[in-house]
Amino acid sequence: MDFWSVTQSLLQGFGVTCLIFIITLIFSLPLGLVISFGSMSKFKPLSAITKVFVWVIRGIPLMLQVFIVYYMIKINGKNLWGEVNRFFYFELGWAVGPPELNGEGYGGLIAVLIAFIINYACYFSEIFRGGIESVSKGQYEAGKVLGMTKNQIFNKVVLLQVIKRILAPMGNEIITLVKDTALSNSIGILEIIMVSKTFTSKAIWPLFYSGAFYLIFVGILTLLFGYLEKKLKFFKE
């Protein structure tokens, strides 16, 4: 168990961590926008349903949601996630880490992703809603009297102001997501912490080592958000 083999294993686990992070972001950002439009809808039933949904998802621990998505489909006799994994593994030849440590492999991963995407979309939707609602009515009205279409007002006038306002809370939430990916090991996904745990019978330092991966990742994100905030400093409302 030398440094390089540990590094190699941890990198593999970190790849899974990054995969969960990126796929969750890619899908939850647009979904969050859709949900925020739903909760701001003038059609009362829609906004009410959306708000209740967001309340439920934000009110229940993410780990429980992961379990629910994972086991819900297991209960009906057949293990759907196992089937999914078999498809990926045998048909496509893709595997997440060594199969014996892999839970349901891609199946479990997809369960995690579904739970994460829905959960984060709800958090993002609240941030989006706050940002969109904080843009003054005057901006919309100015756009209207200047003959702009609704889309033009949103894209050309409102959007950048919203982005500027939500940058800080989005930064926080996205950094939380990096660390939340660890929850996936509760259903046996081989993300970096799960991998580092396999070494603990022999040594404890791989745990610290895996922490360093997170620190570097979060550090890069912090720099990125700092950069974006600086980029948008050129205007103030």
Partner: peptide, 13 residues
């Protein structure tokens, strides 16, 4: 029509 608002409502960006 054109309308000039009390609070300007210029586009800040």
């Amino acid at each position: 029509f054109g309308l000039v608002f009390q609070s300007f409502n210029l586009f800040p960006q």
